[in-house]
């Protein structure tokens, strides 16, 4: 789960695994200073985010990404630091799995091939004997469909932030 989370921000799967390892080790080291065991989860997510940010700020890594996509990735991490929280943080694995499984076959198939088999849209188009555009539209539809299913959980803001930030005059 955390690996999937890290992969939001760093595309490379191996790097994602490493960053998550580091997060777990950090947790182990600091376990005694955690005020409450429940905080471990949010600690891990925060730690993974920070590790990703550190990773992206390394020079050698910077060169791998285009300036624009790097900027976008950093902005995305920042948004998750401050405002958004991912589906992954909400313990709705089961719901997510169901949403994928209940997709109509014609959307589900291209989505699975693209997401899990890592096939390019072109390969999928050939395999299913469909135009590339149709494959793309169907993957898009699949995402839209899941979005409707999970609407209640998407990108919820941490609402408490603004409430008591500044003392009243």
């Amino acid at each position: 789960m955390l690996v999937a989370y890290a992969q939001k921000f760093v595309h490379d799967e191996e790097v994602a695994y490493d960053l998550v390892q580091d997060a777990f080790l950090n947790l182990w080291r600091n376990f005694s200073s955690l005020s409450n065991p429940k905080a471990a989860k949010s600690y891990l997510f925060t730690s993974v985010r920070n590790n990703c940010l550190n990773h992206l700020s390394k020079k050698s890594v910077r060169n791998k990404y285009s300036e624009e996509s790097l900027r976008q990735k950093i902005e995305e991490i920042n948004d998750y630091q401050t405002a958004y929280s991912s589906l992954l943080e909400k313990e709705i694995e089961e719901k997510l799995r169901k949403a994928v499984a209940s997709l109509p076959e014609k959307y589900q198939q291209p989505f699975r091939l693209s997401r899990f088999e890592n096939q390019s849209t072109k390969e999928i188009a050939e395999q299913l004997d469909l135009p590339v555009r149709t494959v793309e539209t169907r993957i898009y539809r699949a995402l839209k469909q899941i979005k409707i299913e999970l609407q209640d959980y998407l990108l919820l803001f941490f609402v408490h932030r603004r409430a008591n930030k500044f003392p009243s005059k």
Partner: peptide
């Protein structure tokens, strides 16, 4: 917002993938 939401669904759906047990144990 749309981009983030669809991206989040895409990214999160990884956990719906048939699990790679070996890899997990290895980790």
């Amino acid at each position: 917002k749309l981009f983030y939401e669809l991206k989040d669904i895409w990214d999160s759906s990884k956990i719906a993938q048939p699990k790679n047990q070996d890899r997990q144990q290895e980790e």
